Simulated scan of single mutants.
Amino acid sequence: MKYHAPHIITEGTTHYPIGALKGREIQYDFEKILIYLDAKGKLLFGKKFKIYREDREILYKLCLYFIRDKTRCGQMGIDVNKGLLLSGPVGCGKTSLMKLLKHIVPHQRPYEVIPCRNIVFGFNHIGFKIIEDYGNSQFFCFDDLGVEPTGRHFGQDCNVMGEILLSRHELFINEKRKTYATTNLNAQELEERYGTRVRSRMRELFNLVGFDKGSRDKRV
């Protein structure tokens, strides 16, 4: 993917304007962003992908966050300098959106989407180096946080993602590095899974943006 102007994204031979350039600032157009996201989603996930009307409100919030619209985000209680925890029921589209939304800001540092269970499997195989690797200064989105198994390396149990989140919090405080994650769990369940210490760090680390509890399973 290339872009020859920050407000126009090129996919193959097609140009998608997602706003207008006013001086050195992009004035984003939400409807145009949705057209691009629909097209990019089909490229990434296949022709069955579509943007659902009932998701427009959460998409609007997420787009404002990614384009760093400080004024509107502030009105919604979102801090553009913090990371993002996207919550919602199974199959509502969290992972797809996190894989997709980074493409509307190709000039920003991209993050890698990694399933939490894969990180735990890595820990089981090679041990504590995995916690160092994911607690480092790269940008990650931890997918399906809270439902991963407990890690076990040479008979030693470890709450792998809990340890990584503590490292990511330190990184955020010291270097302002963001962390992203998706989860099916609510705040109470996350606290039960990781304990009060990690949960309080998560409040500092993340903006919490959630799908409605009644959001349907789009995989069905």
Rank of each mutant, 00 (worst) to 15 (best):
M1R: 11
M1D: 11
K2T: 12
G12S: 11
T14Y: 07
T14W: 08
H15E: 11
H15M: 09
P17R: 03
I18M: 03
K22S: 11
K22R: 12
K22E: 15
R24K: 13
R24P: 01
I26Y: 02
K32S: 05
I33E: 00
L34N: 03
L34E: 02
I35W: 01
I35E: 05
K40L: 08
G41A: 04
L43P: 04
L44V: 06
G46V: 05
F49C: 04
F49N: 03
R53E: 12
R53L: 04
R53G: 01
R56S: 05
L59K: 08
Y60E: 11
Y65V: 05
F66E: 11
K70L: 13
T71G: 07
R72N: 11
Q75G: 10
Q75S: 12
I78Q: 10
L85F: 07
L85I: 07
G88W: 07
G88C: 05
V90D: 06
S96C: 12
K99S: 12
K102A: 11
R109K: 15
P110L: 10
E112M: 14
C116L: 09
I119E: 01
V120Y: 01
N124I: 13
H125C: 15
K129Y: 09
E132L: 06
D133C: 07
Y134F: 14
G135Q: 04
N136C: 10
Q138D: 15
F142V: 09
F154E: 15
D157P: 15
L165I: 07
L166C: 08
H169N: 05
I173P: 00
K176E: 10
K176V: 00
K178H: 00
Y180N: 05
T182Y: 08
N184C: 08
A187S: 11
E189P: 08
R193Y: 10
G195D: 14
T196A: 15
R197Y: 06
V198R: 01
R203S: 09
F206Q: 01
N207Y: 03
F211K: 02
K213I: 07
K213N: 07
K218D: 05
K218R: 14
V220P: 03
